[in-house]
Design a protein around this nucleic acid. Structure first.
Length: 110
DNA sequence: TTGCTGACCGACG
DNA sequence: CCGTCGGCCAGCA
């Protein structure tokens, strides 16, 4: 990542680095990019991810509880869940099963 | 330039 | 347990 990259670009970069079959939280990303407490901005960045040329796996980003809070922002509400399942992530009642196990912390893994 | 909004989070009653 | 509120900061009309 470059120092002159905007906040959004940083977020997109980190999200793209999320390993297959893993997921992380808005708060973790916010903290990694140096904006702990401003996790709202991460969600906001995801909203702008559609304008990015490169694909952004926003489905791997969920809230602290592992809930798929952003599913309604996808082309189809069920898409996010389907994508996660296709990666081997179990989703029940709009929530990731054993989220703690598949949780990917950029501050530790990177 | 001002003000509203938002895919969050933690604290409080 | 559940609803509400404040703080966080970048985009957009």
């Amino acid at each position: 990542m470059k120092a002159d990259d905007s906040f959004f670009d940083k977020v997109f970069s980190v999200v793209r680095l999320i390993p297959y079959g893993r997921a992380t939280s808005y708060g973790a990303i916010a903290e990694y990019v140096g904006m702990k407490g401003s996790s709202r901005m991460v969600g906001w960045a995801m909203n702008a991810s559609h304008s990015q040329a490169l694909p952004v796996p926003a489905h791997r980003v969920v809230n602290r509880n592992g809930d798929l809070t952003g599913k309604h922002h996808f082309p189809s509400p069920n898409l996010m869940e389907e994508l996660l399942k296709s990666e081997g992530i179990e989703v029940v009642d709009d929530r990731i099963v054993d989220f703690k196990k598949i949780f990917w912390n950029p501050s530790e893994e990177l």
